[in-house]
Design a protein around this nucleic acid. Structure first.
Length: 530
RNA sequence: CUCUCCGUAGCUCAGCUGGCAGAGCAGCUGACUCUUAAUCAGCGGGUCCAAGGUUCGAAUCCUUGCGGGGAGACCA
């Protein structure tokens, strides 16, 4: 709760003068343009105008609605109220055109001196509008819509009110015939000052709207199937559910190390043990590893676990869900991504791991032992080292020789047991597990198994991971005694999967970098003077 | 972590083999009552990322550091 002292009498007389003094104490660090805006702010205050008024401004319509619906006979929108940020101004003496931008886009406004100043006092137009308002200021206007001689739908302003004075100059992006001039494109500035990026780059705003629509679409799909959305711990005493290095933190009261989760798999499976038939979670996960255009230290996954199902069933569900998302976002299943047209129309191609490696390398590795695989990898110029066991080498072969070629959505099934310690042994193929990944545009999007529910087998798999760890693998999984205890109470046969929300968003919005689908991607602190 | 490119006005960018720091837009002053990259006349605006070095002289050459992009390595 705020202190009541700010409502003392001297403050209520000039509610904004206190903060103004603070601004002026910073004068030495201001650019010329910033100083001019602060001077304008002071002039507005001197005229009795509050540059940051508290009361509601009633908006009746958006820019987009007007542009879509304004009729030829000029009968609609004759008494409207709209608010937005001034994005451009063209002043011609006693009349001006400007553009304001609301959350739906831009619309031109026409401000005529004698219209907003019907009496002798022309201060509002000559001083306030022309002299002390700037690009970037937020205003509310009332007026009526008409079409100019040049054919542009425009709001004829009858009254104008300042809603927020902007003190920093925006990048001015101009456009003519679909060509942008002085576009604000420097990635560093765009990501560090995402608010500026969002103001001046409307296509960026659209990407994030699509991201939320994607999540809504996925959630609606899962809720319609009556799965329960749940929340599980981010801070975990043991990290598990994936092969990755964690972030470490410390809890003071418990005086213990805690890890930020790398996956939520083991907790969600405990809930299946507890009796829920289907649970899912959208989860921020954290992995203390490299950063590049596909990896941010924190990222979002959706994991889903459904009892009494297997991985074949889950493959059908993933197809159905992603196809539905494409339809919800684009109204069609075929989407342009970079140079490719990717079609999510069901059914998708399905290959086993051995099939796809044979297809792209010509080598059948299905019967090979570790030495044979290492020899094959060397022959194919795939780098391997002594810490890699059989499963890891196969994974390398696949990642190097196959994955980049898989552009259309493709399921790769039946992985070597060594690289899948949480997946159930294959029902017919020795040495394999019931696992699939969805590959799309050359990248992994989704990972799923028939979940291992044999507690004795699971313990042996964890122990095998410990062996890998001794061999030098820093990402091997740690044994989770409580998870094993849960399995010993009995988990029904379960299908589980995780899907990368950031990567799916990249594909669905045709972005080539994960930073473009995260509002605030991780960056080093900016040590330059600001 | 390695290689490579980049960092100059609020924004986008020039600045050559070292010789007075530039343009367009934005801003300021003025003109203009249907403009739209508005137009016309005039004006101001810089820690050239930082530190050090070479030199009579460094935005420019060298070294180191900081920040970013791209390509690798690792991972999802």
């Amino acid at each position: 709760m705020r202190s009541s002292t700010q409502y003392s009498p001297e403050n209520t007389i000039h509610p904004f003068s206190v903060s103004l003094r603070k601004f002026y104490s910073m004068e030495h660090s201001l650019s010329e343009q910033e100083q001019i805006r602060r001077d304008s702010l002071q002039e507005l205050v001197n005229l009795g105008i509050n540059p940051y008024p508290p009361e509601t401004f009633a908006v009746t319509v958006t820019a987009k609605e007007i542009k879509q619906n304004f009729p030829d006979d000029n009968t609609l929108y004759q008494d409207i109220s709209i608010a937005g940020r001034i994005m451009s101004r063209r002043i011609m003496g006693a009349a001006s055109f400007a553009e304001i931008q609301d959350e739906t886009g831009r619309i031109q406004i026409y401000v005529k001196r004698d219209e907003i100043c019907p009496d002798d006092d022309k201060t509002l137009y000559n001083i306030v509008f022309k002299r002390h308002l700037d690009i970037g200021d937020i205003i509310g206007i009332t007026g009526y819509v008409f079409i100019t001689k040049m054919g542009e739908i425009t709001i004829h302003v009858t009254s104008l009110k300042l809603l927020c004075k902007s003190l920093k100059p925006l990048p001015i992006v101009k456009e003519k015939e679909d060509t942008l001039f002085d576009a604000f494109t420097d990635p560093e500035q765009r990501f560090r000052q995402r608010y500026v990026d969002l103001i001046v780059n409307p296509h960026v705003r659209e990407v994030f709207v699509k991201r939320t629509q994607l999540i809504n679409s996925m959630r609606n799909f899962l809720n319609a199937k009556r799965y329960l959305e749940v929340e599980t711990p981010v801070l975990q005493p043991l990290y598990g559910g994936a092969a990755a290095r964690p972030f470490t933190t410390h809890h003071n009261t418990l005086d213990m190390i805690l890890y930020l989760r790398i996956a939520n798999e083991l907790y969600l499976k405990r809930l299946i043990v507890g009796g829920y038939p289907g649970v899912y979670e959208f989860s921020k996960d954290f992995r203390n590893e490299g950063m590049d255009r596909y990896h941010n230290p924190e990222f979002t996954q959706m994991e889903l676990y459904v009892a009494y199902k297997d991985y074949l069933w889950m493959m059908d569900l993933v197809e159905e869900m992603v196809e539905q998302i494409a339809l919800d976002l684009h109204g069609k299943t075929a989407i342009r991504v970079g140079d490719h047209l990717i079609d999510f129309k069901r059914p998708w191609k399905r290959f086993t791991m051995y099939e796809v490696i044979q297809h792209y390398t010509g080598v059948d590795i299905s019967g090979m032992n570790e030495e044979g695989l290492r020899k094959t990898a060397k022959e194919l110029n795939v780098p391997v080292d002594q810490t890699m066991a059989k499963g890891k080498i196969i994974d390398e072969l696949f990642g190097e020789k196959c994955e980049p070629n898989l552009i259309q959505p493709t399921f790769i099934m039946d992985y070597p047991i060594e690289m899948s310690p949480l997946a159930k042994k294959h029902r017919t193929e020795d040495g394999l597990v019931e696992r699939f990944e969805l590959i799309c545009n050359g990248n992994e999007l989704c990972n799923a198994f028939s979940e291992l529910n044999d507690p004795i087998d699971q313990r042996e798999r964890f122990e095998a991971q410990s062996e890998l760890s001794k061999r030098g693998d820093t990402e091997s999984m740690v044994l989770d005694e409580d998870f094993l205890k849960a399995l010993e109470f009995g988990m029904p046969p379960t299908a589980g999967m995780g899907i990368g929300i950031d990567r799916l968003t990249m594909i669905m919005t045709n972005q080539s970098s994960i930073q473009e689908v995260l509002f605030f991607p991780q960056m080093r602190p900016d040590k330059r003077s600001t």
